[in-house]
Design a protein around this nucleic acid. Structure first.
Length: 496
DNA sequence: GTTAGGG
DNA sequence: CCCTAAC
């Protein structure tokens, strides 16, 4: 079932020789390898297919080459109407010329400013079952299956479909911010047949790349392609295939993923109406809190105004970017970095460099953006514990002022939240079963047990207000019970 | 303004 | 980390 290195699997097209080491995939069906016809088709065409045999060496190029298959092969694919598509939105440099429209069913967007030159294309009518997975050593990855193929196969194979061009070379691509990868509104690419899914395990990174590590959310909002791209009318109007996947209902996994509810932030950013509604809600719920709602109201207005100024195309492009990637563009964020900021970051218990990742915060434009997540370092945790030990639980402003005065980004609320999380973690450590479960589900980084033990000690000394109240009430109840039943009091005394 | 707690 | 209620 494994293609030989010199063999081209005609149906799955996975055995491009140079990529064989990466993709030893084979179509699950026991079809004959049409090696001969493949090479014949290549010979008949004048297109240089050297790229098929060459491993891309340039770090600057993630996709460069021609993969063409189908009985009608290259000419038909390349010569198709020669439309021009601008797929990357306003700032995109990507123009695809002469790309078969079928591929645009799958390609909604490409890595930002990544050269996509001679694109894989296919004639879907002749390639009823095709999967082409191309993995570069640097991580550029294309998967594609035609909609036609999906229609034919979706009823036969439970498939997990996703289409991705993933570029792991963000640091190597000049000017690339790797904004987003692509697509999708029922368009997809990688078809993982049951028998090949194992081989695709190597590309976990690719699939993971579709999720924001922080928010654990799909980077691809459901209506990403519709709102986020600038497409020529011929594409938007002429192809209904973008809905074909969902229409045929063959890809539950994909539809499930893509139908995920957008985050609140996404909604807020993408929908002017929701902004208005939010304002209304806030106003409606303001009640006696007029002052608070007033503040929010101003915030909302600040949010809205820039949107109004934007041209529609820009808005659509912005909509497409839910979570911008790290950009090392210098920003004004230094405002939050006081010069005197001397923070001990030696003891990072995370690999997060803390290279002032607030760059990320500011690259997300101004306005009411969420504060960038900054992982707590061990030194910070220790400081917090010291503060709790010194001032007690709940004296967050004291702790902040005395111990975190240099940490501008740590507010008293942050300290409180961290303490709460530490309590959770320390409690989780107590029970062995819980501990196991947490190890499985542990999304947070492991804390040293010494710290957790200290947290528990402090928690016992300075119980959280709620807990103290509950404990007090419980103890009072117990006392009451004991009082009500003298026998138990006696026994209690004996025990004590 | 500060804190607790839900999300 | 945000938001809001409560103080």
């Amino acid at each position: 079932m494994v293609c030989a290195a010199q063999t081209m699997c005609w149906h799955c097209h996975l055995c491009v020789p140079v990529l064989f080491s990466l993709l030893s995939l084979h179509h699950p069906m026991n079809h004959q390898v049409e090696e001969e016809s493949f090479y014949r088709s290549l010979d008949e065409e004048t297109i240089d297919v050297d790229c098929l045999l060459l491993e891309p060496r340039s770090d600057q190029v993630s996709v460069s080459g021609v993969w063409c298959y189908g009985e009608d092969s290259l000419a038909k694919c390349i010569k198709t109407e020669n439309p021009t598509y601008n797929l990357g939105g306003r700032d995109s440099n990507i123009n695809m010329e002469g790309v078969d429209t079928t591929i645009l069913n799958a390609f909604d967007v490409f890595p930002h400013e990544v050269g996509v030159e001679n694109l894989l294309t296919t004639n879907s009518s002749s390639c009823d079952n095709n999967t082409l997975d191309i993995g570069f050593d640097h991580g550029a990855f294309i998967g594609y299956v035609s909609n036609e193929a999906l229609r034919l196969r979706s009823s036969q194979f439970p498939m997990e479909n996703s289409f991705g061009i993933q570029n792991s070379l963000s640091e190597n691509i000049s000017g690339s911010e790797c904004q987003n990868y692509l697509l999708s509104n029922g368009v997809f690419g990688t078809t993982t047949y049951p028998s090949v899914s194992k081989s695709l395990d190597r590309f976990d990174d690719f699939s993971n790349s579709f999720f924001d590590q922080e928010t654990n959310q799909d980077l691809l909002p459901p209506h990403f392609s519709q709102n986020g791209l600038e497409l020529t009318p011929s594409f938007q109007d002429g192809h209904t295939s973008t809905s074909s996947v969902e229409d045929h209902g063959g890809v539950g996994a994909v539809t499930h993923k893509r139908s995920r509810k957008p985050t609140k932030r996404y909604i807020d950013e993408s929908s002017f109406e929701s902004l208005q509604n939010a304002k209304k809600r806030r106003e409606a719920s303001s009640g006696s809190k007029a002052k608070l709602s007033g503040v929010r109201h101003v915030k909302s207005q600040n949010e809205v105004k820039p949107k109004e100024k934007k041209p529609s195309t820009e808005i659509s492009f912005d909509k497409a970017i839910q979570v911008p990637f790290i950009s090392h563009v210098p920003t004004e964020h230094q405002e939050r970095n006081s010069p005197a900021k001397v923070e001990n970051r030696i003891e990072n218990y995370t690999s997060e460099p803390e290279d002032d990742s607030e760059t990320m915060l500011k690259c997300m434009k101004s306005g009411n953006q969420r504060k960038h997540h900054r992982a707590w370092t061990i030194s910070e945790v220790k400081k917090l514990l010291d503060g709790v030990a010194h001032f007690g639980v709940g004296k967050w402003t004291h702790i902040k002022k005395s111990l975190f005065s240099s940490s501008v980004h740590r507010t008293p609320v942050d300290l409180k939240d961290k303490w709460r999380n530490l309590l959770k973690a320390s409690h989780a450590l107590t029970g062995s079963k819980i501990e196991d479960d947490n190890k499985r589900n542990q999304s947070w980084r492991p804390l040293p047990t010494s710290i957790l033990c200290r947290v528990r000690e402090l928690a016992s000394i300075y119980p959280y207000p709620q807990e103290s109240i509950s404990k007090i009430s419980k103890s009072k109840l117990q006392l009451a019970q004991h009082i009500s039943s003298p026998a138990r009091v006696k026994s209690n005394k004996v025990l004590v």
